[in-house]
């Protein structure tokens, strides 16, 4: 089935085209429903604003919004591209490794980050530094 491959290529081109189109006048999205209803900061809170800052070349603001997501972005991009390519080209051997112990630690670190952001004294971990 070559359909998958073209779906992946099409979506990648579409995403790239969208970034080029919205870059510069991307004002962000409406507020997150989870945060507006529960006041909680989830581990992904600030990713949209961080991405917007990155599109404007403002790494400082991006790191203030969600440092963990920005620092993990290259790694996430690497494993996700491999995963998607393996799916599209039907080559299971391209799939990323499991990450072993360090992968599991990373997973729990992300959960911990999500918990700490909501605790008093860790306001600096919230988007914008609290």
């Amino acid at each position: 089935m070559a359909v998958r491959k073209w779906l992946v290529i099409g979506l990648a081109l579409g995403a790239a085209g969208m970034v080029i189109l919205v870059r510069g006048n991307f004002r962000g999205l409406p507020p997150c429903p989870l945060h507006s209803t529960t006041e909680l900061y989830c581990p992904g809170c600030g990713v949209t604003r961080a991405s917007r800052a990155l599109m404007h070349g403002d790494l400082g603001t991006a790191l203030q919004m969600n440092a963990v997501a920005i620092l993990l972005m290259p790694l996430m991009a690497f494993v996700m591209i491999r995963e998607i390519a393996a799916w599209g080209w039907q080559r299971p051997e391209w799939r990323p490794g499991t990450g072993g112990r360090w992968g599991i630690r990373l997973g729990f670190a992300v959960i911990l980050y999500g918990i700490l952001r909501n605790l008093p004294g860790f306001e600096f971990l919230r988007p914008g530094g609290g």
Partner: peptide, 19 residues
Amino acid sequence: NYLWQSIACTLLCCLPFGI
């Protein structure tokens, strides 16, 4: 183990299900 996918979902999909 779907670890990478879970981390990506937790960070990008902004939902507790990823956890």
